[in-house]
Design a protein around this nucleic acid. Sequence first.
DNA 1: TTGTGTTTTATTGCCTCC
DNA 2: GGAGGCAATAAAACACAA
Length: 197
Amino acid sequence: MYPVEEDGLLHPGKGGNRRRFNDAQIQSLESMFEAQTRPELRVKQQLAKNLGLQPRQVAIWFQNKRARSKSKQIEHDYRKLKMSYDALNSKLQTLKQEHESLLLQLQSLRKLTEETGDKETDEEGTSLGTEEKPNCTHQTSSPEFVLPQTNRPEAETGVLNIIDTGEGSFSSIGEKCEFETDGFFHNSCCSSQWWEF
DNA sequence: TTGTGTTTTATTGCCTCC
DNA sequence: GGAGGCAATAAAACACAA
């Protein structure tokens, strides 16, 4: 036993000699903690008697043990949360890349349709004239490639709407990819493989 | 050996519950 | 109001690199 004062506590500054509990004591305390993290007073008193400790020491041990256990649990929860955040974040980066790639592909497609459209009108020898400019209400992220609104397939409008949303609402892409487009966008929302020139 | 960081035991002060 | 719990902190004991 260590030198203790009347209050059952060690007072190193007053000549007491604090010691760490021995292995057997720790083992008993640990196994009791596994059974009960907050044992009753009687249990703590009995345990103290068995281990040759003061009841107050046992009470303090349980208190400190609960604090250690809690901080370990918090660390564990934090690691778990961080792992799932990292996984989600990397998925987001992949989706962003795909989004960028799809944007580029869409631009190429527009360019192509504009070029072929111009050729057709040249061959016919007609032009729309200044009064009959197409209704260009859609401002996309690449304003230089604007398609006429008229006769635009619904699906394409859907795609443009997605693009119009910008980064802030990027998460909506998953939902908006649901529509079908005469087979054009089948299974395409999360893959850029559909467009291979 | 010693300086430094970590762990463990103990204290203090505040809060809640009965 | 006393008992017990918790958070914050002190300080001793320990581990370990330089």
